[in-house]
Amino acid sequence: MSAAPVLRVSGVTKAFGEREVLRGVDLEVPEHRAVAVIGASGSGKSTLLRCADLLEEIDDGDIFLDGEVITDPMVDTVAVRRRLGLVFQAYNLFPHMNVIDNVMLGSVRAHGIERDEAERRARELLGRFGLEGRERDRPDDLSGGQQQRVAIVRAIAGSPRALLLDEITSALDPELVGEVLEAVRELKQEGMTMLIVTHEMSFAREVADEVCFLHDGRILERGPPAKVLESPERPETQQFLRRLLTAGRL
């Protein structure tokens, strides 16, 4: 192992009241790598991402960003979030702002970039993800796929060390999934470090360097996509993949 992983999750537990959602999760995302987390609904996948972005407080364990612990109570959570990007399942664009303001808000307010420079960069990024000419549109006027691409651009506008993707295609009509996955493929090629929670197994197989199967708050199996998705060892993984297969999602 050369350098420290960009993101490291170590023994993380998280409960909502009596319900234990994460029961000791360990995970590493090395630089320029993509790690996909798969698992059934309610297995704790989204909670894991929210904890990594410090939107939820963890109960135990540690999370490290570039080797530095970020889950210590003394850490400035805002400063940490500025070093990470998170894309939500439901896009969560700001409906009262047009596309370019959605993208620029973080650059200007959180990163202190000059408006002109922020706008130049936002335009460039929007153009790169096929959103040229939509800068002044409201999110409501865009298709789901376009909205999610804006959300991706918004998340990477602050040049994050790692990008967290939370089931970013689950809310999309099937014919719009492709364009969003294409955007992620492009990011991967550029070397973006990513932690991806997904239901798209074919996508996990194609983009991820490692797949982790999360079951009941624990990672039961991990390894290269070909191995985990095609010849899983654990009966829980086999059952999960079988269910996806019968649902036509594999």
């Binding site: 805002v78 939500f88 009262h96 307010r109 918004r154």
Partner: peptide
């Protein structure tokens, strides 16, 4: 205003005050 709006505002690195000022209040007042 949906909880996801506050999450998104925090996720792009805004402070609580900035999230309120730029994201939550404009939508709430409207």
């Amino acid at each position: 205003v949906h909880r996801g709006q506050r999450d998104a505002a925090r996720a792009i690195g805004l402070t609580e005050g900035q999230a309120l000022r730029h994201v939550i209040l404009p939508q709430a007042v409207r």
